[in-house]
């Protein structure tokens, strides 16, 4: 068990410099989003109520960032350790079972991304002047943690299978990014045609964003959304592990 934790600890301890750089970019992103969305919104729609805008956009920006970074960081990191360098072999050749490495890597990625979510939330809270209950902020973080877990699994598979970095970037910029925007990060999905809204309603990214927003702003826990996310996490975990195992062992 100690050796299992060593994978998680080394993933974070020896990459502190890099994580600090990542967090600096996170802070820059959060400030730019605040400037670009919060402040410009007031100029474009002068009648917008600040409280309503803050309640809608705060969870939207954090959820948007969490979704983007969880997929992007995992796919790039896993691609690096399996395809660009032999770091997966550095770990595997010390006798760990593949399931241990998979679980440990997933856990270390979730810890890394949770740090991002927390830092981004704190920076944005300072910028908007607070206004949310600490308890619901904690619940919001936990919900997002569960929400992004399945994206980490998909990122794992993408990192193992996609050999070309350009394809990986295109996947992030041309699919994940617009999908996250369309899922209601910065505007309500109700603005779309009812058919599109209905389809988007069941999109995993919409479920993450709207579920997190409901929890933080309306203090309402949506059981359907939560079970949906939990089911997706469990299914993706085992499915993606099976895919990874097939790729690495055979």
């Amino acid at each position: 068990m100690d050796r299992f934790w060593s994978i998680i600890i080394t993933s974070i301890k020896f990459r502190m410099r890099k994580i600090i750089v990542e967090l600096l970019f996170n802070i820059i992103f959060t400030i730019l989003m605040w400037l670009g969305i919060f402040l410009s919104l007031d100029k474009i729609f002068p009648n917008t109520n600040f409280i309503q805008a803050r309640n809608f956009l705060f969870p939207g920006i954090i959820a948007f960032y969490s979704i983007m970074i969880s997929f992007a960081l995992t796919s790039v990191h896993i691609r690096k350790i399996t395809q660009l360098t032999g770091l997966m072999d550095q770990c595997r050749s010390t006798g760990f079972a593949l399931w241990q490495i998979y679980l440990a890597k997933s856990t270390s990625m979730i810890i890394r991304i949770m740090i991002h979510i927390i830092i981004s939330s704190i920076v944005l809270l300072i910028l908007v002047g607070g206004g949310f209950s600490i308890l619901y902020i904690l619940l919001f973080w936990i919900y997002l943690g569960f929400g992004i877990f399945f994206l980490i699994q998909i990122g794992f598979v993408a990192g193992i299978y996609i050999a070309d970095q350009e394809i990986c970037l295109l996947l992030i910029l041309s699919l994940i990014l617009p999908l996250t925007i369309v899922s209601g990060s910065f505007f309500s999905i109700d603005f779309f045609h009812p058919v599109i809204t209905k389809i988007l309603y069941y999109f995993p990214t919409t479920v993450i964003i709207s579920g997190a927003r409901n929890l933080l702003v309306n203090h309402s826990f949506d059981l359907f959304h939560s079970l949906y996310i939990l089911g997706l996490d469990i299914t993706c975990y085992f499915l993606c592990y099976w895919v990874v195992k097939r790729k690495l062992l055979q």
Partner: peptide, 26 residues
């Protein structure tokens, strides 16, 4: 086992790589 390719992180020092390996090996 030593594979035919590199098994170290090029962005960590040699010593840090050995420490990581030591952690893995217990």
């Amino acid at each position: 086992y030593l594979p035919d390719h590199d098994i170290h992180d090029p962005w960590l020092t040699g010593l840090e790589n050995l420490k990581i390996r030591a952690n893995y090996l217990g």
